[in-house]
Design a protein around this nucleic acid. Structure first.
Lengths: 337, 337
DNA sequence: TTGTATGCGTTATCAC
DNA sequence: GTGATAACGCATACAA
């Protein structure tokens, strides 16, 4: 940092106002009593100097920062962006600030771990972790020192509080929807549990339920949306398949883009399902059939749980499992032919 | 905060390692020389205690936080979400952390001002402001004390550095596209300059260019996407109109959803244009014709400019105006009939 | 009501 | 190479 004029401190203000720094401290922090006349003088002096409380110094002695750290996977992902907004809002309601750290957009676990360290260094009072990538074991050391809530992903470790939408129910319900429509040959774009604790379980649930009810399932490994072209090719190599289930709305859209390039009609030739129901992709223009997660509720419940943790209460609902909704659009229909 | 075990300090580590706290400080901060054997002992003690550097205390004496503050309007908006990610990434490259504050999602200027104060209190070393709402005058007092860059919106105030995509060029080019297609009766969903310094100017540019080249323009005031139904109704009351220009992709989508409800064919009956080209709405499934802003470039350039400011250089390119791109999709076509 | 003194955890500047 | 000690800006217990 270039040498720039030092920020004014309470001492500067005190000098200008002709009082001791204690008085200034009381005025700006609002605790303790100060004479009305004195208070006015102090405020005027502060105004004149452009004084801003130094939260760093304050935190140092108060042992409090009134700040919670949110770690989100990637703000550019609608799911996390919305979650962040929901949490921010609720935290403000409780009188806490939120500082956010994100990974570098890459897929490195080590990146994410470093981001958590950053938050710990800043001495946030609590942590909200929102990432389908970071394994529980990496979170544990932080959870041991800091009240920690995991939001938006299944997390059942006994020493971590969590709020999430049941992935099992979502995958199962969506599969049921296709089965009810009459589909018996279905492709599922699957994600290994190791690469995402959200996408993995939900696609596993889809596959499981389909098979339970007697459908044949073609599993297509598809962690990355960039390979959507290959999924489309693979599905079309199996003409008996009448529906494709994607691990997320974005995956579904990527697939549908590829199907469109190949002149495959949705839902006439192939039904397609998504998952999440967050943000712009829910537009009725596309009408994607999907499972909708109650993202705002996840965010606010997570913050509420965190605040209770901060207050020293052990929330009774240690792992909150929220209900999602099946949204039936125009990308699913009974199989034809 | 409930009383929980105090975090270990260098003093605790020093005691356990049987050295003075100075040594520990040198080891964990990596400055100054320490005997190899001693270093090992210290690291082991730190490990055992789960010691984490207290950045608050460090910042206090170092007068540095290596942290820049980003204020974004609302992380749930794809434009800001992407910008945030881009900035985060570039800042990490330069060795800075980013702490993010957002407004409460509402449309209150005072909220946004408070968020900026929060960042200032945290003693961030610099500020990146990303909001089409906050007026320059509100930013000025912060810019006077802190290196400040405004990103993603036109800002020409001489004492503020900025990086943005020319709104004028975007609006003008999009209008030109419609004119070239032969449209002469066009509706523009306008936003007053007072409510957004991005949406306002771009819709003004659209209107201006259309009229310059002899088209008739119907201006429909439409700051909020929720009123899209009214826009559609208004446009359809004027059967001579063959195209509608929206202030953003999301506005365009909202409009098209309403048009779809009314069985109005796009682009056959009405051409529609968007603006931004960020995130999920760029999907080829919709094929929206729009102006694309180079969001990643805006983010990284903004951080670069900020770093130069922090290094005490006055960047020669004080206001960087970046080029966008016209993306022609399937929602615009020559007028029929 | 107001002022004084002490400590928060760290780094930096000295001696040793 | 190592260890005391003085800041940093603020809050607070206590004395005036």
């Amino acid at each position: 940092m270039a040498d720039r004029p030092r920020n004014p401190t309470i001492i500067d203000v005190a000098r200008l106002a002709g009082v001791s720094k204690s008085v200034v401290s009381r005025v700006v922090s609002g605790r303790g009593s100060v004479g009305e006349e004195t208070r006015r003088r102090v405020l005027r002096a502060a105004e004149e100097l452009g004084y801003v409380v130094n939260a760093v110094a304050r935190a140092m002695v108060a042992h409090r920062t009134y700040t919670v750290g949110a770690f989100v996977r990637d703000a550019a992902t609608p799911f996390y962006g919305h979650l962040l907004t929901a949490m921010q809002e609720r935290a403000a309601f409780h009188g806490y600030r939120v500082v956010t750290a994100t990974g570098s957009g890459g897929f490195e676990v080590s990146d994410e771990y470093r981001a958590l360290e950053t938050l710990a260094m800043l001495r946030v009072e609590a942590l909200i972790v929102c990432s389908g990538l970071l394994p529980s074991e990496q979170i544990l050391p932080f959870a041991a020192r800091l009240p920690t809530v995991v939001a938006g992903r299944p997390e059942t470790h006994p020493s971590i509080t969590s709020v999430y939408c049941d992935e099992d129910e979502g995958g199962t319900t969506l599969a049921g929807h296709l089965l009810d429509l009459g589909h018996r040959e279905v492709a599922v774009v699957t994600v290994p549990a190791s690469s995402s604790v959200t996408l993995g379980p939900r696609t596993a649930a889809m596959t499981r339920r389909l098979r339970e009810r007697g459908a044949r399932v073609l599993e297509i490994p598809g962690p990355h949306r960039e390979t959507a072209g290959a999924w489309a090719t693979e599905v079309l190599r199996h003409p008996e398949i009448t529906a494709v289930m994607a691990p997320s709305d974005r995956h579904a859209i990527a697939l549908m883009e590829q199907l469109r390039l190949r002149d495959v009609a949705v839902p006439e030739r192939l039904s397609v399902t998504g998952y999440d129901g967050i943000g712009d992709l829910t537009t009725s223009l596309i009408g994607l059939t999907h499972w909708r997660q109650p993202i705002d509720l996840i965010g606010s419940r997570a913050v509420d749980a965190l605040v209770r943790l901060l207050d020293g209460e052990q929330p009774p609902d240690h792992h909150q499992v929220l209900n999602g909704t099946l949204v039936v659009g125009r990308t699913t229909a009974p199989p034809t032919g």
